[in-house]
Write a protein that binds this DNA or RNA. Structure first.
Length: 808
RNA sequence: GCCGGGAUGGCGGAACUGGUAGACGCACAAGACUUAAAAUCUUGGGAGCCCUCGGCUUGUACGGGUUCGAUUCCCGUUCCCGGCACCA
């Protein structure tokens, strides 16, 4: 054959052809009501940034799409929707920077994302069902969701210390503060006491924690949620205050150490500080409170370890010993956790120990590792035997936790208690670009939910949408929006002007996808019953305690309110890894950003997809190296040549080749199922290498290869499938099946070891007996060299694998 | 500090329930084709040593252990990534 006449893999025309054909035929817009094997394949929808699609997006979507296409070719009715998470500060801040209006910018970004980029990556998106969170037809239902939660008592307004981002000029949820900084702009967050809207996610803390035991999610994600929820078991104990009627309640995980309580500490913000402070101590206490208040979060973190505090002048009574103990105020106790007050056990808590050393407070050992008493040079936090603990002496401290808790319960001085680190979800934002909170404030009737018939509360068009730092949304400056009437009494009232956290938009979007055509309900119950929970969800782990926690909460709430019958939204969730470039994180400043468009144009989407997946295990990410993509391109070039070279009819007979063929089907199947795409691709390459070496290349073998690469290279496989004479889509051809019996070869490499060291590998028939195997090995020259003149202690035979001769 | 994940050639990475470490690919080298180059095809390789077919020694972050045999299991250590963190 003449080289220059050879058929050429022209990815540009092939990919265009199949994009158009899929769209024209509506291959991926499935009839949701007429399916036998529904499979909901979900990927985290993107926010349409002006910079365009990031390679990280492509990586995420491709991995998910490969799974979806694999299920499709296996015969499932795969629903693979996509949408745009377009509300929120990211879009708004960008619009501000560009001097544009988000209402004008966002549709442009979406169009660019969709038409120039997302449509090019070869995913089987069901476009007619796309969702845009800024569309009133969508956010009407986001507001509806708020109203339901409000009516159910899960949404409330309260004055609380909240996280304030001075740059974004809004409050944030604690999940959106990453080590003291705003998740969006990295500005240091400050604490402010403000009236805000919250969702009572803490009511679900135990369920959110408990279900982690059984949900099929990536371990890394579950562990992050576990840490975030921060469940800890212990007890709450009441301490009487000398000369006061009040009791001081504390939370502790170590009730077994109560005999060792030698003082107590209040958080500076604790309400009782004012009353307990004696007049002589008052100036000092007030000075300390002023100083702590002035400290930033960062200073407090930096100082962690150094203990500061002052004595209030007040005393409490140790409920176990009856002795008077001083009450201090110190900022190592946090108002936001437990009761904001602690019982201090310096002998058995490192922080209390340090504090006691600093201020010369008594240290009493009550848990001894060996039962004898010690000079305490540091806190002992392990378990041991109770000492100096009255009637409890001699008990193991771990046991004592339960015993003492019960003792307190019997004396009505305390109770077993589980504490969570999780806080309620602060939902309100003092910004413009979000769905308005659907609430009307009436002086007479209080805060009222906007009646459902009046939804959506449209986000008014405002030329000046700049946040003003007043603690209220820019909507507050729009009197036309603000002034309204009370839905209960009809009197004059004001609208709530804060908008909702855009994480609420994304907390329920997967409910909407299967029901996009219903405008009278957020989601149809029949559709939902058929399609949810989501079968497979893939996304980045940066949302482990944001989006992924909120979706679980919202799903549980929807169940409790009777809208749905399941409480976990995703049957399976897998976090994909991160993709880096030449060993380093991608960043604009480093100039090592991979532009997907360039690679898709140059090598084709199929190549790009496959290469991204070939970089490393999908759940762990990979290192992108520009040259590496050529390997994948060569792989597809070779397949293309093979298929266009009119392969022979008939079936291959070579047993070795058949073994390779069936093994490839088996291994590729298994590895795709586990999202180990890199190894699946390696097996495909190995198979091609084997196939190309055959004297006769059979069409049937090429067809199997084409079907196996289909999830990775959808356009190319369709083209090749057609070239091989088929009319329908390769995705309707079924996934190849393997025959286990064909994988077994006639012979194998019998490894011969002496004392565990390999001395030879001998071709031996499968099923060789132990005696024959030993004989074979012992007749090997290189083996005899090592056993000659030595006494044989043992002969080990592992069938089908090796013989090991142990000598001395 | 606690929790989770990880460390394997020049590089990205393979290795099932402990059984030939380095599959597959990149880069590299040699050869074939070519006037030449590109493309393509073939071959080669962890390191060190004897260097002759071939063989020996050594090698999966480090130090021990269990085992006939350890990248894999156990104990200890270092470093990297992610989560939580003065959370009582």
């Amino acid at each position: 054959m003449q080289r220059d006449k050879e058929a050429k893999y022209d990815h540009l025309s092939i990919e265009k052809k199949w994009r158009e054909r899929w769209e024209g035929r509506g291959d991926y817009h499935i009839d949701l009501d007429n399916t036998r094997k529904p499979f909901y394949n979900l990927m985290m929808f993107p926010y349409p940034s002006a910079e365009g699609l990031h390679v990280g997006n492509v990586y995420a979507f491709t991995g998910s799409d490969i799974y979806g296409r694999f299920m499709k070719i296996k015969g499932y009715d795969v629903f693979e929707p996509i949408g745009f998470d377009a509300f929120g500060m990211h879009s708004e801040n960008f619009a501000l920077k560009k001097g544009m209006h988000p209402a004008e910018l966002v549709p442009k970004n979406i169009a660019n994302f969709r038409d120039n980029q997302l449509k090019m990556i070869g995913a089987m998106f069901d476009w007619p069902r796309q969702v845009d969170t800024t569309d009133p037809r969508y956010y009407k239902w986001t507001q509806w969701l708020f109203v339901q939660l409000f009516k159910y008592g899960l949404a409330y307004q309260d004055v609380a210390a909240v996280n304030w981002c001075p740059s974004c000029q809004t409050v944030l949820a604690s999940e959106q503060v990453i080590s003291g900084e705003c998740e969006r702009c990295k500005t240091e967050v400050t604490q402010k006491k403000m009236l805000q809207w919250f969702f009572r996610i803490t009511r679900y803390a135990e369920r959110l924690h408990k279900n982690l035991e059984w949900i099929d999610w990536s371990e890394i994600t579950k562990s992050a949620q576990q840490n975030w929820i921060g469940r800890s078991e212990g007890a709450e104990i009441d301490f009487e205050l000398a000369g006061m009627d009040d009791k001081l309640r504390v939370f502790t995980t170590r009730p077994d150490t109560v005999f060792g309580v030698t003082y107590m500490v209040l958080a500076p913000e604790h309400p009782i500080v004012d009353r307990i402070t004696s007049s002589s101590q008052r100036p000092e206490v007030e000075k300390y409170l002023r100083e702590t208040k002035a400290k930033t979060e960062q200073e407090r973190i930096d100082e962690a370890g150094k203990k500061t505090g002052v004595f209030t002048g007040g005393y409490a009574v140790n409920p176990a010993t009856g002795t008077l103990i001083p009450v201090w105020v110190a900022d190592y106790v946090l108002i936001g956790y437990g009761t904001g007050a602690i019982m201090a056990v310096p002998a058995h808590d490192e922080r209390d120990f340090e504090f006691a050393k600093t201020f010369d407070l008594p240290i009493v050992e009550v848990i001894s590792p060996d039962g004898s008493s010690h000079q305490m040079a540091e806190a002992y936090t392990g378990e041991g035997v109770m000492v100096n603990s009255g009637e409890f002496n001699g008990i193991n401290s771990r046991e004592a936790i339960g015993v003492i808790t019960r003792w307190f319960e019997n004396h009505r001085k305390g109770t077993g208690k589980i504490n969570y680190r999780l806080h309620d979800w602060c939902l309100s934002r003092q910004r413009y670009w979000g769905p308005p909170i659907p609430v009307i404030h009436c002086e007479k009737c209080g805060a009222q939910a906007v009646p459902e018939k009046d939804l959506p509360v449209l986000l008014p068009e405002m030329k000046d949408f700049r946040p003003d730092g007043s603690g209220k949304s820019p909507l507050n400056r729009n009197s036309e929006f603000v002034e309204t009437t009370c839905p209960v009494c009809g009197g004059p009232a004001k609208r709530e002007t804060d908008v909702m956290d855009n994480f609420l938009d994304s907390a329920w979007y997967f409910f909407r996808y299967p029901s996009t055509e219903f405008n009278d309900r957020p989601f149809d119950s029949e559709r939902t019953g058929k399609w949810l929970p989501v079968d497979m969800y893939i996304g980045g782990n940066e949302h482990a305690v944001l989006h992924l926690l909120y979706t679980r909460f919202i799903t549980m709430a929807l169940k409790d309110m009777g809208f749905i019958e399941f409480e976990e939204p995703f049957k399976k969730f897998r976090a994909h890894g991160l993709i880096i470039k030449d060993g380093a994180k991608m960043s604009k400043s480093r100039g090592n950003v991979v532009n997907p468009d360039t690679f898709i144009k140059e090598y084709g989407a199929d190549c790009f997809r496959t290469y991204l997946m070939f970089l490393g295990p999908y759940t762990q990410g990979g290192d992108f190296q520009d040259k590496g993509i050529m390997g994948v391109r060569r792989f597809y070039d070779r397949i293309f040549r093979l298929a266009s070279d009119s392969p022979a009819h008939g079936e291959p007979e070579d047993k070795r080749f058949l073994a390779l063929l069936h093994k490839t089907i088996r291994d590729v199947t298994g590895h795709i199922e586990n999202l180990e795409y890199n190894t699946a691709i390696a097996f495909l390459m190995e198979f091609l290498n084997g196939l190309a070496k055959q004297n006769v290349i059979h069409k049937s073998s090429v067809e199997i290869l084409v079907r196996l690469i289909a999830p990775f290279a959808p356009h190319l496989s369709e083209e090749l499938w057609e070239m091989l004479g088929h009319t329908g889509s390769v995705f309707n051809s079924g996934w190849p099946v393997w025959d286990e019996t064909k994988i077994v070869a006639d012979t194998f490499q019998l490894v011969a070891q002496v004392n565990g060291k390999i001395r030879a590998a001998i071709e031996a028939p499968v099923g060789i007996s132990k005696e024959d195997a030993l004989a074979l090995v012992e007749s090997n020259e290189n083996v005899t060299r090592f056993i000659e003149g030595k006494s044989v202690l043992k002969k080990i035979y592992v069938p089908g694998k090796l013989v090991n001769i142990v000598v001395q």
